[in-house]
């Protein structure tokens, strides 16, 4: 547990000093949100009804940048080797990095929520459902992102491959999170809790697979 906490603290400390998420990832996410508004011709009714989908697509785009940053912290200084030499279990490193990534993504999502409330005039009808769905979706994105991020570094691998690998894997999360938010902000009559349950299943699956596979992918990072 101490290793997970140490890795989590390290990543958040690196972020607090470099401010990459706050100065690059977050502005990028807000720009995407604005671009959607412009692309839909500032039609408020359309923006409001498409808010769940636009919100989660924006989160996915932003998450690719956040994942790249999370891995670059280690790969640029060959720190994966140092982490291995500490004797820490790979699954603990994975858990620590996934938690740190989840915290950063939740911060981005909090600001984006304000963005859709102000720009898209959306209103949250069921805050408990929205927060629970967001938590489950973020854990799923963070776990899959932490695993695929390490796959997208190494000799000969270009980081442009990350979206190609990661986004298809996160498609079910996008669908389920959008449906859950549809219920949470009253844009469609669906059972948001059943979709949230599905999100929880995805999060658990990605967490288990990531914990098992991290040792293999870390070896060659």
């Amino acid at each position: 547990m101490s290793v997970i906490w140490a890795v989590l603290q390290k990543d958040l400390r690196v972020e607090s000093r470099s401010k990459i998420v706050t100065s690059q990832v977050l502005p990028f996410a807000l720009i995407v949100l604005i671009l959607f508004g412009l692309a839909l011709d500032a039609d408020r009714a359309a923006l409001r009804s498409f808010t769940p989908g636009l919100f989660w697509v924006t989160v996915l785009f932003a998450s690719t940048l956040a994942v790249q940053r999370s891995v670059a912290v280690e790969s640029e200084t060959n720190a994966f080797e140092a982490l291995r030499l500490t004797g820490a279990a790979a699954w603990q490193v994975f858990a620590g990095k996934a938690c740190a990534l989840a915290v950063q993504l939740l911060a981005v999502e909090a600001v984006l929520t304000l963005g859709v409330i102000i720009w898209y005039r959306s209103a949250i009808a069921n805050p408990v459902l929205v927060v629970t769905a967001a938590l489950a979706a973020t854990i799923a994105i963070a776990c899959a992102g932490s695993l695929y991020g390490v796959l997208a570094v190494g000799e000969g691998v270009r980081d442009t491959v990350l979206p190609l690998l990661l986004l298809p894997v996160l498609t079910p999360v996008l669908v389920a999170a959008t449906r859950a938010f549809d219920d949470g902000i009253n844009t469609a009559a669906v059972n948001g809790w059943s979709w949230t349950l599905l999100l929880g299943a995805f999060a658990a699956a990605y967490a288990v697979v990531g914990s098992l596979a991290y040792a293999v992918v870390m070896e060659d990072a």
Partner: peptide, 21 residues
Amino acid sequence: YRRMLVDPMARARRSAVLALV
């Protein structure tokens, strides 16, 4: 992804993880 990796054994291991997921 397979086409990018240079080292055959690293390619085998990492692609295997990708394939299983």
